[in-house]
Design a protein around this nucleic acid. Structure first.
Lengths: 204, 204, 204, 204
DNA sequence: GATGAATGAGTGTTCATTCAT
DNA sequence: AATGAATGAACACTCATTCAT
């Protein structure tokens, strides 16, 4: 929004391609500039350094994604707990599809974030997503265990399951380029994960 | 086995440390040689290039691991199918623990393989593990679906679940340094995963 | 006098800080403009180049200093020669204090000139001060040697002693931030230097 | 002594020229390598960085000079004090000539050290020389003042006079390329400085 | 078996300066 | 009077790799 410079936009666009192709570390600023038809000096007029350029590529999308995830996983838990007890995964599926849609709308950038950002500040971004989910599931299992009169799953298993859920998105993205097919698959994945939670309670 | 040169071994050992510390891409051959107290020429006498050195570090352990996994997931499926139908996960747990034990015995190298090999041939190693599991589960679900008279889960969900299972190991390894604790956690994970399979069948 | 632009003044002010902090060579025009809140284009509207900017910072003060020195060392020499012969250094001390006061009033700029101008036209400024003194002492020693009937000190020693006198100011400035203390020290320095001249005559 | 590589020596030699010509900061490693007919990689095989290269150029000579100065100014002071009281500067002259000879034998390098090292670790090297002299003169004036029954000159004036003495060497070196002429001049300089000390005592 | 030396292309980054608007 | 954009050359430094000895 704030910037309308054509050169800047061309740089961001070429950087996106380069990061996607080679990953952050192997990406070459020279190569990006060459593609964009400018000199390195021009790049450094718009961006402070390599990492800042990555942020420019990724920032907006990341912000939106973070918001989306938080909005889904920071809601009132009561309804969700009840649905979970009834084995109703419809809400989970709806949320997952919404997120998935966002991911596919920003396909390249999300891929850079999740799989090509090694060596940058974003290399641990997955962990931050996991954190959000983990807090959500911590509270949710708390409620469910209270209602069931059964012990809550281990901290570790909650963390792990949150991780798995994020990994499920990553996997979809990296293995299925077509959004429609991905949307079909996500339903089954959610079914698997929901059933997994059942196992997590039963076991304990 | 084939090599008994002290220099070679020192190089491999120092390379292991360097790869573990910095990851494959950021690892410096110079730095490895310095630690080993030899010159780069010596390194290039024993190894063809950087990647070959990584193979020397990782090869044996990887081979053993591949064998172990294959031995577990290429057996006769009949018994396993029956156990699965009875909800008996004891065999799965036993197998998982055996693999986990192997992973912890070769902790550093496995970590390099699974989390520090980006930029090398091994960056897709996880996929090869997944392949083995996928083939196994493909056949297993075939049998189970036949016995249940229910449709088999999708190809994708089989692939994905296999991936999740491998990721579970990766997660354990990277989040839990202590083998004993990891062994406790794996039980719950297996419970979760087994329950997940149930969900995968039910859905379809 | 000639310029009243607020931007120009801000630039000169910020340049002064930067030059003082980093020295001429390491000073960055970018950094100066940033501090001043303008772009490099603005700087180049007012100044031709980096050196011209330094001149703007330093020019007026340098001019005043040059005048002051010249006014002190281009006077009639007769009286001074007589005082010197009587061992009376009071006039020298007075002059030195007046110059020193000027230096401390323009502390930053003088410091830039004397110690931070390497790489610019002013890196040899000390030599120009020395020239003035040298001419003065050349004539003065001429008179004194005539009156004493003793040979004049060597050209070199006259040049050197002039240099020492300038260096004395530089040293004071760089080692003593407080003007009052500097004023006390200068008396002893003058005593040292005057006595030195005696030695210069005696020797020859 | 320790190194006999022709390339290394050529690099050191070319670096000496470059540092002398442009000063440390403006010296370009590229340019040095070009002159030496090697690539930058070769330079970095022998030296850790730009500063290390400067050390290689300057180190030995600096070590020798430091020793020489220390050997002259760390001796027993008793004789010197007596000579000073008798106005006998012959020993001072002898020492100064010996040092001066050393300086002229290593003309280029000394010049680099004293006048071209700004931006490197050596930019404050003069201060270290001054320190040695200052300590020497502190003790010497102590003895002399005791014998004279007169107060010792100020700390500041001792520091300053030490500085002047070093500056005298710097001045000679930078203004007189011919050692023989320099040797003649030094006698008069010493006479001036010795007389100056007399003034320093008288004043106080 | 291993060294010491060297290559050559590459890295991200900074700089004073220019100029159309 | 000043901006925003861009140049182009330079910088110190690092890398995997090679090879004569």
């Amino acid at each position: 929004m704030p910037d309308e410079s054509a050169t800047r936009e061309k740089l961001v666009e070429c950087a996106r391609q380069e990061f996607l192709e080679k990953g952050y570390m192997k990406a070459s600023l020279r190569s990006i500039c060459k593609k964009a038809g400018v000199t390195t000096g021009a790049l450094y007029f718009f961006f402070q350094n390599k990492e800042d350029l990555l942020s420019a590529v990724v920032g907006e999308t990341l912000g939106g994604l973070m918001e989306l995830i938080q909005s889904h996983f920071s809601k009132e838990l009561d309804t969700e707990a009840k649905m979970a007890l009834n084995g109703d995964a419809s809400e989970d599926i709806r949320a997952s599809k919404e997120i998935l849609h966002y991911l596919y709308q920003h396909y390249d950038i999300v891929l850079i974030l999740l799989a090509k950002s090694q060596g940058s500040v974003y290399e641990t971004i997955v962990d931050r997503f996991v954190d959000v989910l983990e807090q959500h599931y911590d509270k949710l299992t708390e409620q469910i265990s209270a209602k069931l009169g059964q012990p809550k799953p281990d901290r570790y298993i909650i963390h792990w399951a949150s991780h798995m859920q994020i990994d499920a998105f990553v996997h979809l993205l990296t293995h299925e380029k077509d959004e429609e097919k991905a949307l079909k698959n996500i339903e089954q994945i959610v079914a698997y994960l929901v059933a997994g939670w059942v196992g997590a309670f039963a076991r304990k």
